[in-house]
Design a protein around this nucleic acid. Structure first.
Lengths: 149, 149
DNA sequence: CTAAGTGCAAAAATTTTGCAAACTA
DNA sequence: TAGTTTGCAAAATTTTTGCACTTAG
């Protein structure tokens, strides 16, 4: 997976900004990319502390901001009172089918949709850099259970 | 528009919960649905205060939570450090061009994209109920300033 | 009348920032 | 060595809560 690539990509990004590749940054990133799901800062900080005691909370915040700036992660709002982070597979899609019943998330990519997005952007004089498409509804199984449709 | 419907829908919802339809709630809702865009609490509170002085900030928070619970609105994370609210027009669009430089948000609707979403959903046996499309990039003005492509 | 809601201010929770020490390049 | 990053704690922000008073039903 991405686990092979994040270190190189992060290092590359830090270099371009004239920054330093430090141990705390690599530790936070490593723990983050080893985790599944969408940890918030507190959960992530706990996990980092467990593997590498002595890492400050501010560093976790700052490192996650770095990962977001570099495009390796992004924040997602799940309605909790805090930010949660999602690992971004560079070549991956940002399109999801999200089942509101069971929470399952299906990733997909649709070239035609991306082309239309470009099209719409240009029409508004907008320079598209990235996108996120979330479709909410019921997956096959849950639709069956709820006996709808 | 929805402006005709929110009052009835809100009243209905409040009744089902055994709550009271109060003046402050109606004021906040009215100002919110009269606004365009995606106000945060502070912006909304200012607008409410302007039209109906003496409305407390906590009431704005509590009323927006009520609107979200009732399905008339929802929160959106636009990367500012606070929650912004979006009016949910039952028949409306949830598509945005978001400028990562100046924060401007342009709403749009593209029938062709929606059709493709339906298409993709069906292909995955997914029953689409709602969607969110956010396109990030630079608006015309910011692209000019940054002198990019 | 009773239960729910309001406004204010205090409290809680999350995120950012200042700074001396430590570290990368 | 020069400039960046860290960890801590303090500060800033956003959101929630306690409470006496008011209001809807």
């Amino acid at each position: 997976m991405q686990n092979l690539g994040w270190k190189r990509r992060l290092t590359e990004y830090i270099r371009t900004t004239g920054g330093h590749v430090t141990a705390p940054r690599l530790r936070v990133a490593e723990v983050f990319f080893d985790m599944d799901g969408h940890p918030g800062i507190e959960e992530l900080h706990r996990a980092v502390e467990k593997r590498y005691p002595g890492t400050g909370g501010a560093t976790v915040y700052r490192t996650m901001k770095l990962l977001c700036d570099s495009g390796l992660a992004c924040t997602r709002d799940f309605g909790d009172g805090f930010a949660r982070y999602e690992a971004l597979d560079p070549a991956g899609h940002h399109d999801h089918l999200i089942c509101t019943a069971c929470g399952k998330i299906i990733e997909f990519g649709e070239e035609a949709i991306e082309e239309l997005q470009e099209h719409v952007s240009r029409r508004h004089g907008f320079q598209m850099r990235d996108h996120r498409l979330d479709i909410y509804g019921l997956c096959r199984e849950c639709a069956k259970i709820e006996g709808v449709g």
